[in-house]
Simulated scan of single mutants.
Amino acid sequence: MSYLSLGLMATLWCTFAASAWSKLRSRAAQKAFAESLRPLPFVPAGLVHRAAAATTMAEAGVVLGLGLAVVAVAGGWSPARPLATVMLALTGGLLAVFTAGVALAVRRDTGARCACFGAAEQPLGARHLVRNGLLLAAVAVAVLGIAAARVQPLGLAGVAVALPAGAVGALVLIRLDDLIYLFTPRPVRGSP
């Protein structure tokens, strides 16, 4: 299997792990996530808490499945290719649903905030679509890499580089709102 695919799977795993953990860490966090869904026009008010719970469980399922796939790919186990392919397809499907929801919310200018990783400070916008697009691209490239490579154990040195590189990629995506805020010029108070 390919180190690139392993690194991308690690990026996806870390991103979904952070997202799931931000919702599972407490009842208050889960409730806050549910409330962030309320402005979305496609989530009926009576189903907000169920939709939040379903989203959280789907993310947790992706974390478990991708974690297994990462281990299988790194170890060169024989079921690595089908397991990784199925988990990446499920991850891509979930991301496609999230992306469609974000696109609809942005298009309708709902004012909904992104509570993907806990804090819901920034309204959903183009940067969230870009982030999801990058995650979808990671899924596609990882699948192509897995399909093209033969199943064999990966070298420890390559794994030791691919996994942390994937984690760094995830960190950038998770903190994208903060990075954009940090590097976006702000108007100076008192200027016209």
Rank of each mutant, 00 (worst) to 15 (best):
L64V: 15
A58H: 11
W13M: 13
A52Q: 12
V102L: 03
A18V: 10
A120C: 03
S191C: 10
L156P: 04
L94T: 06
L37N: 05
R81L: 14
A54M: 15
S78E: 15
L90Y: 06
A69E: 06
G67D: 01
L37V: 09
L144A: 13
C114H: 06
D177T: 04
A147I: 00
S78A: 15
L176M: 13
M87L: 13
V168T: 03
F98H: 08
G93H: 08
A84G: 08
R38T: 08
L40G: 07
A32E: 11
V130F: 01
A142M: 04
F42Y: 14
C14V: 15
T91Y: 03
L8E: 09
R113G: 00
L88T: 12
E59P: 05
F98E: 11
K23R: 05
A45I: 07
A58E: 14
A120V: 06
D178K: 08
G75K: 12
L37E: 07
L90K: 04
L12H: 03
L135K: 06
S36E: 11
S78F: 12
G7S: 08
R127L: 14
D109T: 12
P44R: 02
H128W: 13
C114D: 14
A53Y: 02
T110V: 04
A126Q: 08
Q152M: 13
C14L: 15
W21H: 04
V151T: 14
V168C: 08
Q122R: 14
L171V: 07
V130P: 08
L40N: 03
T99K: 07
R113M: 03
L24G: 03
A103Y: 05
F117Y: 01
K31Q: 14
R38M: 07
G76E: 06
H128E: 10
L24F: 04
T99D: 04
L90Q: 07
V143P: 00
Y3G: 09
P153N: 01
S22E: 02
Q122N: 12
M57P: 05
A96D: 00
L156H: 05
R50V: 15
A74V: 04
A60G: 09
A160F: 01
H49A: 13
R107K: 11
S5R: 04
L179S: 04
D109K: 15
A52W: 04
A103P: 00
G65V: 15
E59S: 00
L40V: 02
A148V: 12
S26C: 01
V70W: 03
V106P: 03
R131I: 09
A18L: 12
A34K: 00
A149H: 02
P79G: 07
P82R: 05
T55G: 13
